[in-house]
Design a protein around this nucleic acid. Sequence first.
RNA 1: GGGCCCGUAGCUCAACCUGGCAGAGCAGCGGACUUUUAAUCCGACGGUUCAGGGUUCGAAUCCCUGCGGGCCUACCA
Length: 510
Amino acid sequence: MSEATTDGPETLADDASELGAHPLTAQRLAKLERYRAAGIEPYPVGAFAPDVTAAELHADHADLEPGSSTGRVVRVAGRLVGRRDIGKLVFGVLQDETGRIQLFAQRQILGDEDLEGFRDLDIGDWIGVEGEVITTKRGELSVAVARFVLLAKSLRPLPEKWHGLQDVEERHRRRYVDLIVNERARDTAIVRSRIVRELRRAFDRRGFLEVETPVLQIEAGGALARPFVTHHNALDQDMYLRIAEELHLKRLIVGGLGKVYELGRVFRNEGLSPRHNPEFTMLEAYVAYADYHDVMNLVENVIVEVVDEVLGDRLATYQGDTLDFAPPWRRVTMLDAVADVTGVRFELSMDRDAAADLAEDLGIAVDPSWGVGKIVNEVFEEQVERTLVQPTFVYDYPVEISPLARAHRSEPGLTERFELIVAGRELANAFSELNDPLDQRRRFEEQQAARATGDEEAHPIDEDFLRALEYGMPPTGGLGIGVDRLVMLLTDQASIREVILFPAMRPERT
RNA sequence: GGGCCCGUAGCUCAACCUGGCAGAGCAGCGGACUUUUAAUCCGACGGUUCAGGGUUCGAAUCCCUGCGGGCCUACCA
C-alpha cells in the first residue's frame, strides 16, 4: 500500500477499501484527513511522555474528599475508552496498562476550541493528558484536562462498552480487542506471566540452570505423541518439532550439569480441544542423585510457592470445586487408587486375560494387544483420574506405558513414576529416570515393535540418546509440568484457549 | 475423526419452535445539558440474517451442502 498523497484521485474516506466502505470507519478516516489538513499529526512520535499511571494515581490519592484540588499536575497516557458529554463539560475514561482514570474536561480550563477538540476524540484513540489531580463533586478521582495530545488515531469502533466482546471466536482471533475491553482477558494474561515468573524463581532459587534445547529435531522423542514434520532445505532433511524436552535435558545431566530445567514450547500434532492446543508450554526439570520421592517433594514445594505468590492463599476455586493446595498432598499408588475407586484389585503379576476380564467387567474396552500394565492404566484414566479433585500424587505406573522411567526398585512390572492429578487432570508427570542404557535400549525396541504394528505414537529409537546413557547418567529424578494447565487451575479457566493469548485456529475466510 | 449445538447491524441480543414488512440497547451521527459513573433527554440513521443450493405464492425461520466456532467424545499434557 502506498501512502495517501495530496494528488490522489480520491480522499481516504472515499476509498473503496474496507475502512472506506463502512460508515463507522469512513467517518474516522475523514477525521484523520481533517487532522492532517489542520496540521495535527495523528500518529506523532515523541509527542508525550507520561509520568504516572492510573494505578499510581489511585494509590496516591485513595482518600481524597469529594471536590478536592491537589495542586499536583500529572501526565497520563492511554486509550480513551469512555466519554460522557455534559455540554460545557466532558468526562472521559482513560485506560492504561494499570487501570482506568477519569478525565475531567471543562470549558473554563480548556476554552471552547480545545473542549471541542476533546469532544471530537473517538473512543479508542490513544491520548496523552496533562492536568491537575482532583476529585469531582461525586468524589471520583480525575485528571482535570489542561492539555491533551492525540498519540494515535483509532480507525475502528470498539465493542459494546458494557458487555464487551462476547463472541468466543472473535475474542480469540482478535485477542488485542479482547484485551482492550475484557478485564478478565487482561487478568488472565497477567496471572499467566506471574505464574511463569514464579516457576522460574522457584527453580532458580534451588540452583537449577535454565537451558534451551533444540525445537527442531531429527527424531521427536521424550513422549508418546505424533509430531509436526517440517523440512530443512539446506540439509534436505525432514525434521520434527519437539514433543518434549526430556531427552536433551537428560543429555545435559550426562554432561554433568547437575540441575537443569527448560520452560518452553512443545508441539503435538493432535486434535484441538478445550484442554489441548497443538503448541503448549512445558516445564521440565532434572536433578542428579534424586529419585521420584525427592521429585514429589520438589513438585509439591514449587507449586505451593507459586500458589502462595499468585493467589496469596492455598485454597483455589476451580469450576465450582475448592482445591486445597496446603501440603502434604495425598500420595497413593496407582493400583491402590484403582482399587479404592473401582473396588477391583489389579496386580501386575496377574494373568493378562484375567486382567482383561476384570477391566471389561468395569466397562472398559480392552484391545487385544494390551498387556496388564496398559489395561490397568486404561482403567485408571477412564474411571479413577477424574475422581481425584484435590492435589494427589499417584505413583508406581506400569513399565509398559513408561518407556523412559526407571524400573521400580522392588515391584516387578512397575516403574518409579508418578503423576500429579488436580481437578481430575494430570498436571505433572515425573520419574526416577531410567539410566540403565541396556534397559533403555530394550524399552525402545519394545516401542519399535509397537510402531511396526501401526502405533504412530510409539517412541522412536534415539541412538544418540542411548549413546549418552552409555557414557553414564547418574541416578536422576525428572519432572514435567503442564504450564497451561497450571494457569487454567489458578485462573479458573475451563478452556486452554483462554490461557493462551493466540490459540490455534483454522484460518479465517477473507 | 464421530455426535450435538451455534452463526442476525461495528458490539450485545430479539424475531426461528409455529414461514408473512428483520427489531431493541450500546456505539456512531444531529441537537439539549457545567459534576457524570453503562450519564440523561429528543431526533434521524445503520442489515449480503455466514456462503451456496432446494422447498414454498413467500425463507432469518423448513431441508441439503460447504465454511467458521462452541461443547461432548477420541488422542493426549
